[in-house]
Amino acid sequence: MQPSEPILRLRDVHVHFPIKGGVFKRTKDHVRAVDGVDLDVYKGEVLGLVGESGCGKTTLGKAILQLVRATGGSVTYHGDAGETELTTLDDAGLFPFRKRLQIVFQDPHSSLNPAYTIFGSLEDPLRHYGVRSRAERRKIVGDLLEAVNMRREAMDRYPHEFSGGQRQRIGIARALSIEPELIVCDEAVSALDVSIQAQVLQLLMDLKREKQLTYVFITHDLSVTEYLCDRIAVMYLGRIVELCDAEELFANTLHPYTEALLSAIPVADLDRKSERIVLEGDVPSPVNPPSGCPFHPRCRYAQDVCRTDVPALRPYRTAAGGEHLAACHLIDQPPAD
């Protein structure tokens, strides 16, 4: 499935955080958390965003929602009323778009206010977006809780009374409350036990089918993305290094980083043991990224050209005729452009 209509279009998005120091708190340097990302999110798809910690995937997710403002580039929202550039809007201007774009956070323990009942947490967005009568809000919150397989009565209880999996479902209910089109799931299942993780994954898929949602699914777990996602973007040091359909990524890996990442994942299948490619060292600091290809100090194929030139993200033809983007100098097939 490849619905052609984009809902979001990111062009050359940069998010740089200043590092301040010295007596006068002058800006000394920048953390280049997101460093030039082009990305389209299509209506109705599940886009996976994977990479190691510190690669900028969470910052990119927040930049999509304007929770972190991009320091460069554009984020365009394509709605019924035409295109809107989000990065230039102020808070009041963003208000109608916050309803369309929502987020589920990683940690179900810190993302719910412990002093509010579940109803208190879930009615807030409804009140802001115009549901005036309390009786109606109670009805909607009850319906939402049932939609995430919880009991209506749960709304009058407090977060500490629920387990991690239940709290994560409440977080999903809150994101759904104002009927968004796109939900960013930031490591939404990573903090959960395996048996509970499967329950939440199935819930997310069921909700997607029912409500025609679009997900941007941020995770470090490639096994989950393979199961869940239509397309996958692999990030390294603030850039996308590979982007294509999920099946294509696993069948025909082009970038050496993705190859190493895939081989490092422990697979619960004794018949599928492959060679473990062990990367040397750690992810470099995003304050001083290496020259050339950001991956070259850890890449086992690195050559001179990798040390000097930054590879562009270029399209390659897949066997199925689709598009497979990768940023590497050493791919031995001609790019399609």
Binding site: A198, E247, F250
Partner: peptide
Amino acid sequence: SIPVLGRGKNQQIRA
């Protein structure tokens, strides 16, 4: 209950 890498999108996971 866990998705296994390499088994693709059609694998059955059962919570």
